[in-house]
């Protein structure tokens, strides 16, 4: 127990976090593009990708909401030791971690204010799979269009409608991640419809 919460952090924090941040930044700047990320081995059920994002961006200034299964004693102890971040509910969180279903409802998170739209939550969504197929993405950071497997599309469309307010999403799966900022327009592609009919 003791060893588990002390281990799994960055070996060399300045270098590990620099590499991890570049992966997160590239993902946020190029919505839908999947990046490799490594460095942290957090306790289950957190993925290495989600753990690396948390160690790179979180500290005592960033309240975190652990949603559903992600809220375990091991995760709490690991975050406390490695980041010192306070834990909170969704309405005061700067970061939220958990599965898509556990993170619902999205209306519970701060979306920023008209004068400070940056004061909104970044949601780290744990995904069972993350592939460059599915919903079609358009907007800043995307040359023509990109595709990404999203848990759903409507929630991201209503989030886009709030722009410049809104939530930003990071999708974590194993050692990989992708991001979907509020600026991205999401539409359901014909390919996604085919996938839902089980043609793959």
């Amino acid at each position: 127990m003791q060893a588990r919460k002390l281990s799994g952090g960055f070996d060399t924090p300045p270098v590990n976090s620099a590499h991890a941040f570049r992966a997160v930044m590239e993902a946020m700047a190029r919505p839908g593009q999947i990046q490799d990320i490594s460095g942290a081995q957090p306790p289950a059920p957190l993925s290495n990708a989600a753990g690396s994002v948390l160690l790179t961006l979180c500290d005592t200034d960033t309240p975190i909401y652990l949603a559903g299964d992600a809220d375990t004693d091991d995760v709490r102890a690991w975050l406390a030791f490695h980041t010192g971040a306070p834990l909170t509910g969704p309405s005061h969180s700067m970061f939220a971690v958990g599965s898509w279903d556990a993170l619902m409802p999205l209306s519970g998170y701060p979306i920023g204010t008209p004068e400070y739209p940056d004061r909104s939550t970044t949601l780290i969504v744990e995904c069972a799979e993350l592939e460059a197929t599915g919903a079609t993405l358009r907007g800043p950071g995307i040359k023509s269009e990109a595709t990404l497997s999203l848990p759903e599309t409507r929630a991201f469309q209503s989030n886009r409608a709030l722009f410049p307010l809104g939530l930003d999403f990071i999708f974590a799966c194993g050692d990989r991640l992708a991001a979907l900022p509020r600026s991205t327009e999401v539409s359901r592609s014909s390919r996604e419809a085919v996938a839902h009919e089980g043609a793959f």
């Binding site: 924090p13 270098v15 620099a18 930044m25 946020m28 700047a29 940056d118 722009f163 900022p181």
Partner: peptide, 24 residues
């Protein structure tokens, strides 16, 4: 420290960069 700044400062700047990218 690598690249002069302390890690907490870099985290704060990195969070700002990500929000900046999300709201061009």
């Amino acid at each position: 420290n690598f690249a002069y700044l302390d890690e907490q400062t870099k985290r704060m700047i990195r969070r700002a960069i990500l929000k900046g990218l999300a709201i061009p």
